[in-house]
Design a protein around this nucleic acid. Sequence first.
DNA 1: CGTCTTTGACCCGCGC
DNA 2: GCGCGGGTCAAAGACG
Length: 156
Amino acid sequence: MYGAKMTDNNPMPADSPDSDFTNFSGYLNFDDFVEEEDPYSFFSGHTPHQQQVRDFGASGGHFQGSFSSTNFSSGHEGREFKERVAFKTKSEIEILDDGYKWRKYGKKMVKNSPNPRNYYRCSVDGCVVKKRVERDKDDPRYVITTYEGVHTHPSP
DNA sequence: CGTCTTTGACCCGCGC
DNA sequence: GCGCGGGTCAAAGACG
């Protein structure tokens, strides 16, 4: 990275105790998905860039989303709120700009899918939001985007 | 010139 | 104790 806290060998503080939802399949249960007529309403509350969000619609027509907000205070230092949001979007591109700058920090091949999984992170210093993009193995035209964390930027 | 992408390697937790 | 899987880091190049 660029001059953040790379000196720290242990960049992960007390953020590991997510044993309940560490399993991706846990919230990847699309059977419980709720087809949203207006999924942008979710972003409207979090993203002040509705115009950018409009780009979402331009990329694809259908949208399915499932969000799981996990606010846990693991009894250690319950001051960090981790929010995980899993989205399944129909689009040919996985780089859906939601108004924030993302910097890709990793790519990995999933053994159960011929498709790679991309890892993004918010470029803004101080923001700890992570984003995970993966194509659906059954429907390559669908993209599974998983947001993790909350943005702490000023207006982007 | 600064930032971001890319890629392989490393690390960590868990299972066997 | 080792192997596996998933996640992250980190150096160099590409890009504007």
